[in-house]
């Protein structure tokens, strides 16, 4: 049984289709990341899986339950970190955790959970005085109170400084290592690269690309760029392992770019060509494809208002 199952899910708000028929599965102990631009439908998908809203059409199952109709049975097994939720401003961190322990079956100890998220010094601070990153950590603490089997994290590290972000990644990795299933949305591609076993990129309510980071990036090709030397006509540029140069103009100068499969052989060909013609290649860059390339490519492919 898949821990999370989404099949042909659609959600509408009035005339606006927020989610346009998506399907994916997440296995036990797996971390699945949903990436996408703002308004891509990530949060709507997550809130459907969390049981806040009924599926417009299609099927969603979490641990075999319909999350909306069987919320009562399912919720004690879930940890939910919403993208945005309020704290009672007059309560301290300790009071907030204590209060939530009363709502949670067999909860972790307060000190344990605050230690996990790195807030042990802030117990007597009122929640209104916490920084954005500290609030996010308290959010995470509440989501972890009930030792959830499935954890939903909606942009968990937004507002955190790099140190706190890395600390959070460490916590999430340990939870996954212990068998927790995690569904995460994020704006930070590095976060997905660091954490995700598999991911999907959503755009305008649909999943455009899905797979492991390696799968997703592989289709994209590696990239070699350099400034076209002044005395070389564009038509004289070589092909590299069959790839033809595309020319862009940056700061008034022509830049040649190649999308290639495998950097080493292509670079060797390029350097041999340059050596042969006694050329200096200014601004030579060679890099493997990144998730960012795929992401930007996906977001650019169907611009706002495009007819599909």
């Amino acid at each position: 049984m898949q821990t999370i199952l989404v099949n042909e899910l659609r959600q509408r708000y009035g005339d606006f289709e927020a989610v346009g028929g998506i399907s994916f599965e997440v296995g036990e102990g797996e971390l699945f990341a949903l990436l996408g631009t703002n308004g891509a439908g990530k949060t709507t998908t997550l809130e459907t899986l969390e049981g806040f809203r009924n599926a417009g059409s299609g099927t969603v199952r979490v641990l075999g339950h319909d999350p909306y109709r069987e919320r009562r049975a399912l919720r004690p097994q879930l940890g939910i970190m919403l993208q945005e939720a309020g704290f009672f401003a007059d309560l301290t961190v300790a009071e907030t955790v204590d209060q939530w322990r009363r709502f949670t079956p067999s909860p972790r100890e307060r000190d344990e959970v605050l230690g996990m998220v790195g807030l042990p010094q802030q117990t007597e601070v009122r929640t209104r005085q916490l920084s954005g990153g500290q609030k996010r950590r308290l959010d995470l603490a509440l989501a972890l109170l009930g030792r959830p089997r499935v954890l939903f994290l909606d942009e968990p590290t937004t507002g955190m400084d790099p140190e706190a972000r890395h600390a959070t990644w460490k916590i999430v990795r340990e939870l996954v290592a212990d068998g927790t299933t995690v569904l995460l949305t994020t704006h930070y591609l590095e976060e997905a690269e660091q954490l995700a076993d598999r991911l999907a990129i959503m755009h305008r309510g649909r999943i455009e690309v899905a797979g492991t980071v390696a799968d997703v990036v592989a289709g994209q090709g590696d990239r070699i760029t350099f400034r076209v030397p002044d005395r070389v006509p564009v038509s004289d540029l070589p092909t590299l392992c069959g790839a033809v140069a595309d020319i862009a103009v940056e700061s008034g100068r022509a830049v040649a770019g190649y999308r290639v499969q495998g950097l080493q052989a292509s670079l060797y060909e390029l350097l041999r060509w340059a050596e042969h013609h006694r050329l200096e290649l200014d601004g030579l860059q060679a890099r493997s494809a990144s998730l960012e390339d795929v992401f930007l490519h996906t977001a650019a492919a169907t611009p706002e208002g495009a007819v599909r």
Binding site: R72, E84, A85, F87, G146
Partner: peptide
């Protein structure tokens, strides 16, 4: 007040019905 400051949403995000 709780709806607008999203504490109502938080109260619904756990095991409470």
């Amino acid at each position: 007040a709780r709806r607008e400051d999203l504490t109502l949403k938080r109260l619904r995000s756990g095991s409470l019905s």
